[in-house]
Design a protein around this nucleic acid. Structure first.
Lengths: 245, 245
DNA sequence: GTCAATGGATTGTCCGGACAATCGGACTAC
DNA sequence: GTAGTCCGATTGTCCGGACAATCCATTGAC
């Protein structure tokens, strides 16, 4: 039952990473069934011609992803799963596209404004200093889905209205070399104002889903602050939380 | 400016963990300021009388937590922060208690029921098999905040109504030796039905925040499935998402 | 039959070293 | 002055080994 594992020492990709990828693929495609033991680390290392620390590093990365569980004195098992997917910093645009919803964006505003107290606090810039403000209406199949208002520090990337119409904000940021790391979110709900009702084609008082989010890059700097409003009848958040003990 | 670091080799707590805790404390209390270098790993190891792998393990755990950033050829820096807090699988009870809201619970039902198709799929048990169903009303300062309906597999823990009134479900699960690992959540909003309006002391049509959650333990088994309804005027979700690149 | 002691298996922790990859600044050439 | 090159510093990867801690099943005692 020992699955096919091998490493290419001439490849520039790290050995532990080659191994973890092969193991992940085996789990994904069902070759390694949930609950099955992985075989002890020593033998595995010997079979592959690797050292134990390297094998452990590969296994550890999958444990961190939640795909494997280690039990001292027992061995390493594949989790009973359903959990497979890693949690992602969800992008509304990508979500809609993945769901085949034909997302589109109408840019309502793209200007420089002085930072309000709230925005300044979120982005950690002086109050009153200039920041980008982008207001967008996100459509799916031509129907309005959400109203997005985002603030960004200046100098990080150039926000062309044309590009904002074509894709999502996160893709633009990644393309600009910003590595997104984490985000603090606050999700709530409230009734639509008359203006919002009209904007979304719903009646006044219709339930709306609201989100405020501050996104940080890998150095811990705030790179985006946004206030979003979604039609509750058309959208809900799906996400996964991990516990770090 | 080298800060005070030391390890106790006679302690049963792992050396790398002692070090990571001291570093985390130094970051938390501001001794290590955001953006400052940590000093190279070799010297750090020599100063502490540890090996480099041990020091690396300590640093790596903080990198995983998002407190440090490594840059090859540069060094290891403290992140520019605000992010400090680790993401937690939020417990409504703990959230309220931490906010000084005097949480209380009224158990409306605590019975065994046959699993519906939805519940069976979420918990990965046969449809129609018996599962626990717990219905609760969560109060803060005597005011109703949320209606919680949870399903749990049988045999995991004994759910005494008395205990459920005194604390949160997650605490009971942890106390029963279940190590929570991750959860899939879906958050939405809708208008209150007449019955819900009455239950919460709000009018019909008032916006409600809804959440469905399936929680998994460290072996990947589903240990809880719940449908919750919150008064949007009184509660919103705060959480943090991480990106795994 | 029940409970406690023993032992094998496996992961957890730690060491010391070696070389490669990458970054940033200093230096040089033009 | 500007661009390209070199070099030191630092982290990234990998090795091989040693012992401790823990789990599980078997064995043994009562």
């Amino acid at each position: 039952m020992s699955l096919q594992l091998s490493v290419d020492r001439s490849s520039p990709v790290p050995l532990y990473f080659q191994l973890s990828q092969q193991l992940e693929a085996a789990i994904e495609c069902g070759t390694l069934t949930p609950g099955s033991l992985l075989g002890n680390e020593i033998d595995l290392a010997a079979r592959l011609g690797l050292s134990r620390p390297t094998v452990r590093q590969a296994i550890q990365s999958l444990v961190d992803k939640g795909l494997l569980v280690r039990r001292r004195g027992v061995g390493t098992q594949v989790v009973h799963s359903q959990v497979k997917r890693p949690l992602e910093l969800s992008s509304l645009y990508d979500d809609l596209e993945a769901a085949g919803q034909c997302p589109a964006t109408r840019v309502l505003g793209n200007t420089l404004v002085p930072a309000s107290a709230e925005v300044a606090a979120a982005l950690d810039v002086p109050e009153g200093s200039e920041v980008h403000r982008v207001e967008r209406l996100r459509l799916a199949h031509g129907e309005p889905m959400a109203y997005l208002c985002n603030y960004l520090p200046t100098g990080l990337l150039d926000l062309e209205t044309e590009r904002l119409e074509a894709t999502g904000l996160y893709r633009l940021m990644r393309a600009a070399g910003i590595t997104l790391h984490s985000a603090r979110q606050s999700v709530g709900a409230r009734a639509a104002t008359p203006a919002e009702g009209e904007r979304f084609g719903e009646s006044e008082g219709a339930p709306l889903l609201t989100m405020q989010r501050t996104t940080f890059d890998d150095t811990g700097r705030a790179v985006e602050f946004g206030t979003h409003t979604y039609r509750a009848s058309r959208y809900s958040f799906e996400f996964q939380l991990l516990v770090r003990p």
